[in-house]
């Protein structure tokens, strides 16, 4: 992945998560992954188009998703209902939008698609012909992996 793209995603994820969770968020070591990767349970996916093509995937366990949705809504949720799903899509939207804004400031044009939420057990994600950058974030409510797979249109 183009090196200029990395920081906007990392910074946006960090600042949005810190803000909405009012807590300490830690970033793990970034790494690259090409092969199929398992999804923890709840995945929000945002597509990117423009100078690049690809997608950003926010991956977390169901418990983490429910806890985060509870904090963001300021009420105790017990299951992954419509409200919780909408909250997680909003979180994905906020992070991606902030990254795209930062990229725009650097002169890169990206468009994004509305987020989609995918839930289930034993899911895997694989990308054709593109490697994914994994940004692990540790929140007080569990870990979120941000999986960015974009490539330059050649």
């Amino acid at each position: 992945m183009r090196v200029e793209y990395i920081n906007p995603f990392v910074e946006a994820a960090y600042s949005v998560l810190t803000e909405v969770l009012h807590g300490e968020v830690k970033r793990g070591n970034l790494f690259l992954k090409a092969s199929t990767k398992s999804v923890m349970g709840v995945a929000a996916i945002v597509g990117l188009a423009g100078e690049v093509e690809g997608r950003v995937l926010f991956d977390m366990s169901k418990q983490t998703a429910i806890k985060i949705a509870s904090v963001m809504n300021m009420e105790e949720l017990t299951e992954l209902d419509e409200l919780a799903k909408a909250t997680i899509s909003e979180l994905a939207n906020m992070i991606t939008a902030q990254s795209v804004t930062k990229l725009h400031e650097l002169g890169f044009r990206f468009d994004l698609t509305p987020p989609a939420i995918i839930t289930g057990e034993n899911m895997e994600v694989s990308d054709q012909e593109v490697e994914a950058l994994i940004v692990p974030m540790e929140t007080p409510y569990g870990s979120i992996e941000i999986n960015v797979a974009i490539r330059q249109r050649s």
Binding site: M1, V3, L32, A34, E129, V130, E131, R151, Q152
Partner: peptide, 13 residues
């Protein structure tokens, strides 16, 4: 020049 964070052991498109 396009600088990329990339592992050559992965897919090279």
């Amino acid at each position: 020049i396009l600088f990329e964070f990339h592992d050559i052991k992965n897919i090279n498109p």
